[in-house]
């Protein structure tokens, strides 16, 4: 079971601002998800190699060849603030 503070911490890591009601709601939702996931612990995994992927593919690689990029206009299209062909972002560091 996760408590409200943990929900708030996770929300903060994901840059989500939650109201008190939302926090309560997500706490319930997340606990349900965790309970569902807990069921996996019941599976007997004795002798089974850990894996990082569910599909049995390995070594999907591409040749080192260049291809056309998107074009500056398209790249910048979704940027909320553009200056001289750059994406402009607010202050990064606090003094």
């Amino acid at each position: 079971m996760i408590n409200k503070n943990e929900v708030k911490r996770v929300a903060n890591l994901a840059r989500l601002r939650l109201s008190e009601e939302e926090t309560t709601q997500y706490q319930q939702d997340l606990n349900q998800i965790l309970q569902a996931a807990d069921k996996l612990k019941l599976v007997d995994t004795e002798g089974i190699e850990p894996t990082a992927h569910a599909i049995p593919l390995r070594n999907v690689l591409r040749l080192d060849m260049t291809s056309e990029s998107l074009g500056i206009d398209q790249v910048l299209k979704n940027g909320p603030e553009i200056t001289k062909g750059y994406f402009r972002v607010p202050r990064i560091m606090e003094e």
Binding site: V75, T83, K84, Y86, F87, R88, V89, P90, R91, I92, M93, E95
Partner: peptide, 12 residues
């Protein structure tokens, strides 16, 4: 520098 900047420009 980064500390004294009001904004920054990003090139990806």
């Amino acid at each position: 520098n980064i500390l004294g900047s009001d904004f920054s420009l990003m090139d990806y």
